[in-house]
Design a binder for these strands. Structure first.
Length: 261
DNA sequence: TTATTCGGAAATTAAAAACA
DNA sequence: GTTTTTAATTTCCGAATAAT
């Protein structure tokens, strides 16, 4: 019988975690007991039954070889080692809350693509899924890199003295890192569209114009792939979400056609 | 002797395939 | 639709090593 979820320290130490706050091990070792690591998605990704298909392939090849035929290809590639699931120390709930507040005060009037309640809800659950965490890091990066928008960042990043802009850069790097863990290319959704758009905004403000253009195109392409350019797409979403997603589509559409990088 | 580290087996989970 | 199979991640056992 194992714990539902081990704390960060027990996970790192590879020891049994009884749960709780703090857990017994952290309490005993005077460690801060956190549960910040983002769990990876379990289970097969993409084409499955790799082993059996490889074995069948090998059998076929052997058969071909004994029959005097060699195809010349070796399609068996070693699996990639899984990326680290450990979260950086950059983002926390307080920073996310401040960024959400700042977004709705300064940016929402021109980019009305989020619903505050839903966003706050997802912020609360940001440590439970990659998609939520990715959205929050992207949003924070977007807000923090905006020129002229000030978020009080004192007390963040382990006490280091970062400016809002530096923290924005660090958060942007984190958003890109975590986004790579998501399987959004194989299974695109509106989150992938939003994060691509937010990363476009970051790059634009960080003077990375080629990359900005790339992300804007990515947002537009993903939006098209999931069918946001079709009316039928919005029939499957509820009214509020549908309105936000329509706005998102048009924001991307208009930005792409009006911006000259 | 006690505490810590970490390789890797076992458990857990989820996606795809197979089946009814 | 449900069940089974497969492949991915997470937990944490227990041997090795370090610290006291």
């Amino acid at each position: 019988m194992s714990t539902k979820r081990a704390c960060d320290a027990c996970h790192r130490r590879k020891i049994r975690c009884a749960g709780g706050q703090p857990c017994w091990n952290c309490g005993h070792a005077s460690l801060s007991c956190t549960y910040n690591a983002i769990p990876q998605k379990k289970g097969p990704k993409g084409n499955r039954a790799k082993v059996i298909s490889e074995l069948r392939e090998t059998k076929l090849r052997d058969h071909a070889n004994t029959g005097g035929y060699v195809d010349g290809f070796d399609t068996v590639t070693p699996p990639l080692s899984p990326p680290s699931s450990h979260k950086s120390e950059i983002i926390d709930q307080q920073l996310v809350s401040r960024c959400i507040e700042s977004f709705f005060i300064h940016l929402y009037p021109t980019i009305p693509i989020f619903e505050k309640g839903a966003l706050v809800n997802r912020a609360k659950n940001m440590s439970t899924s990659i998609d939520n965490y990715c959205l929050m890091t992207s949003l924070c990066a977007f807000v923090l890199t905006q020129p002229g928008h000030r978020v009080n960042v004192s007390g963040f990043s382990g006490g280091s003295r970062l400016t809002s802009h530096d923290l924005g850069k660090a958060t942007f790097e984190e958003a890109i890192r975590i986004r790579k863990l998501s399987s959004f290319i194989e299974r695109p959704n509106s989150d992938a569209v939003v994060t691509a758009y937010l990363l476009f905004g970051c790059c634009f403000c960080l003077d990375k114009h080629s990359t900005a253009w790339f992300y804007l195109r990515e947002a537009a392409t993903l939006a098209e792939i999931i069918g946001m350019d079709e009316e039928s797409y919005y029939l499957s979403t509820d009214t509020t979400a549908g309105i936000r997603e329509r706005r998102l589509f048009w924001v991307i559409f208009i930005t792409e056609r009006s911006i000259h990088l």
